[in-house]
């Protein structure tokens, strides 16, 4: 039925073809992708030969000043653009055998202190670069540079997470060596960074024992997205009523595959295990690079 005047019966044509679907009651038409209609500069549909077709709108007829609404099916993921950038980052990291980690936690879990200790322990064994995400200040990147690794600060302003495009730009500026370890310290936030892939090999979630054991249940998305949980500040356990087994149990209820290391940047407990986990990851990145390069070499 014509939605302009109510007349019925006429079959709608789109670029010379009969429309396939129509919505009963609404008078609106679905239009197939790439049906050949191109917009003229005035926003009206036009045929390839330049004819303006005023019958091609949803109403099937034109009345001055009355618009012709139509339906467009687009089926696009809201995060598609971020995921495209993340894929590009991941390809770049694979090509250069860079092992990238996305460190996520709430503010104050001890991420930066842990990074400083990690850099001190590994800087002679491998090239390391750090991307620091915070809403404001470059305090953290200054701490990392003092520890002996190049660091780039991203201030997100009002943003609550890093996204893959920010990381791509930071990686360009960092001028990283092949076979590097890239540590990305995300904005302190257990909610938003969960949904944004940066192209990292793993998300590492840091939970400190000064927080509640039930944080994994309260923020399940982050613990589901992570591959490793570092239970930090374990040197404080004698002074707290924190139940380690309960916290790990909650985390594994969300993510049964989650690896857990109890660690303390202050006492050094668990550091050896964490460093070994990183070194294994770096070796895997190098294997991945080789297996990725070989088919190309055969083709080329």
């Amino acid at each position: 039925m014509c939605t302009t005047c109510g007349c019925g019966g006429s079959k709608k044509r789109f670029a010379g073809r009969l429309s396939k679907k129509s919505r009963s009651g609404t008078g609106l038409q679905y239009r197939a992708y790439g049906s050949g209609i191109k917009a003229s500069e005035t926003g009206l549909p036009a045929h390839a030969d330049g004819t303006l077709d005023f019958g091609a709108g949803a109403a099937g007829a034109h009345a001055p000043g009355i618009s012709q609404a139509r339906m467009v099916r687009i089926e696009r993921d809201i995060l598609a653009k971020n995921n495209d950038y993340a894929m590009e980052n991941r390809d770049d990291f694979t090509c250069r055998a860079i092992f990238a980690l996305n460190l996520v936690s709430s503010p104050g879990s001890g991420k930066t202190s842990l990074l400083v200790k990690t850099i001190a322990a590994l800087k002679d064994a491998m090239p390391i670069a750090v991307i620091e995400g915070d809403q404001q200040t470059d305090n953290d990147s200054a701490r990392i540079r003092a520890a002996g690794a190049p660091a780039l600060q991203i201030n997100t302003g009002k943003g609550c997470h890093l996204d893959a495009h920010m990381v791509a730009q930071a990686v360009q500026r960092l001028d990283m060596q092949p076979r590097s370890l890239l540590l990305i310290e995300n904005v302190g936030n257990l909610v938003c960074p969960a949904g944004f892939d940066l192209g990292e090999a793993h998300k590492v979630v840091i939970l400190s024992v000064t927080e509640g054991e039930d944080k994994p249940l309260k923020y399940p998305d982050m613990f589901r997205a992570a591959g490793l949980m570092l239970l930090n500040k374990c040197d404080l356990l004698p002074y707290l009523e924190f139940d380690v087994e309960l916290a790990i149990g909650y985390a594994r209820r969300i993510n049964p595959e989650l690896k857990v290391i109890c660690i303390s940047a202050v006492s050094g407990e668990g550091m050896a295990q964490w460093l070994e986990w990183i070194e294994n990851g770096c070796r895997y990145a190098q294997t991945l690079q080789q297996s990725n390069a070989e088919p190309k070499a055969l083709l080329g």
Partner: peptide
């Protein structure tokens, strides 16, 4: 394992 219901997509538009 989550197999569905975690999507965020723009499905369709009404435009003019």
């Amino acid at each position: 394992q989550v197999t569905g219901g975690d999507q965020m997509r723009v499905r369709e538009l009404e435009v003019e």
